[in-house]
Amino acid sequence: MSTAAVPTDYTNRVLYSEEAASFSPEVLAEMDAHIAKYPPDRKRSALIPLLLLVVQRERGYIDNAGVNFLAQKLELEVTDVWETATFYSMFNMRPVGRHHIQICKTLSCRVMGEPQITEHICNRLGIHVGETTPDERFTVSLVECLGSCGTAPMMQIGFDYHEDLTPEKVDKLLDSLE
């Protein structure tokens, strides 16, 4: 059987792009410290901490280059990173504002006045829940219980808890954020 001209350049995995992110030596060392917590043949364990505590912090969200980097670093397929990352609600697979306002909407906060707080924030910022302000400063999300029910209503901005919220408190807080 004859063989037609065969292109020699096959791609192993077709990605958005094959380019991987690069990180500073300090960040790389930080990653290695996370990886060192787990047995050497169980590097995958470090996936979630690295995505949440390093890649998302450094790149703003879980971007393509970050995924490619982690796949190489942890010897995984990109799709392995994808399957894990999309399961967890704290990973932003799309860019978000500099300050990610996450208002708890579960029962205790809801009965203690979450709707008013949400409305206040949205009015103030002029956006709906799920949107980002045009200046890319704020994104507003509603999230499920953050373990702060005794101090409801509450929200988290980035990793910081803000509890016992009132509209006035919210105003002061938002004013103080760049």
């Binding site: 979630i48 995505l51 949440l52 967890y88 609600s89 704290m90 990973f91 999230v143």
Partner: peptide, 10 residues
């Protein structure tokens, strides 16, 4: 003992 983080999943 090591700390490990989840990422938002009840």
């Amino acid at each position: 003992i090591y700390t490990h983080t989840g990422a938002g999943a009840y």
